[in-house]
């Protein structure tokens, strides 16, 4: 089986530069977690399925739906595939030797996911109080192509308290707690486990020059 070419970066690709607010992001769920996706008690997605234990909730890997569709969901990188193709890359990188079936990727038809409309989660500022002072935390999405998937995005959080790297360890820990908590609250409310109706993304959004109409 050949790796789908449409997922790979191309020499004429650029970072997606059009408004994707009405598009959907998809998050693949770690197979190691066997729980039901939806908590039957509350009707909301389980917070432990929003991200895997190995990842930090305030910087989540997600995939933009459009060219990547439900047909691609079963694609799963092997350990070797993650090493070779898991890293970030330029949008116009040349992947001369694409992932090879069984060596770098397999198909897992039981792969689970959740989706969320970007406008439901992105650029929403959430006020919070911590020890009697007021701040905000904001969720934003960033196009971060990887060697295996040009449509890879990152779902990230930032605080009005400043750059995390500039904070002392204690304050950083507290701010990260707030981000993680807000991610759990927001995504458990907004995430859906049903595959949505999606529209094709115009090529002009990601190609440096749109193909000339015949």
């Amino acid at each position: 089986m050949n790796y789908p070419q449409e997922l790979l970066p191309q020499t004429d690709y650029k970072l997606i530069d059009c408004n994707v607010e009405n598009c959907f992001l998809l998050r693949l769920v770690d197979d190691a977690i066997q729980e039901e996706m939806i908590n039957p008690e509350t009707g909301y997605i389980r917070v432990n399925l929003i991200c895997s234990p190995r990842e930090r909730i305030y910087d989540l890997s997600v995939i933009l739906l459009g060219v990547y569709t439900q047909n691609h969901i079963p694609i799963e990188l092997t350990r070797e595939g993650k090493t070779k193709f898991g890293g970030y890359c330029e949008p116009n990188s040349t992947i001369s030797d694409p992932p090879v079936y069984n060596d770098h990727f397999v198909l897992n038809k039981n792969k689970r996911f959740w989706v969320s409309k970007i406008s439901s989660i992105s650029n929403i500022e959430v006020p919070y109080s911590r020890d009697n002072s007021n701040h905000t935390v904001r969720c934003y999405v960033k196009h971060t192509p990887t060697k295996w998937n040009f449509w890879h995005y990152s779902l990230r959080w930032e605080s009005s308290e400043g750059n995390l790297d500039d904070m002392d360890e204690k304050k950083r820990g507290k701010v990260l707690q707030r981000m993680a908590n807000e991610a759990r609250v927001m995504l458990s409310r907004m995430a859906n486990v049903e595959y949505p109706q999606i529209e094709a993304l115009p090529a002009s959004c990601y190609q440096k020059k749109s193909p000339v109409a015949a």
């Binding site: 908590n39 008690e41 509350t42 389980r46």
Partner: peptide
């Protein structure tokens, strides 16, 4: 009401009463 033990050494509760949801 539900309880989840998170990977951040926390317990995450979702509590619903009428139209109020308390996280």
């Amino acid at each position: 009401m539900s309880l989840e033990v998170t990977t951040d050494k926390s317990i995450f509760y979702t509590t619903i009463k009428n139209d109020i949801t308390i996280y």
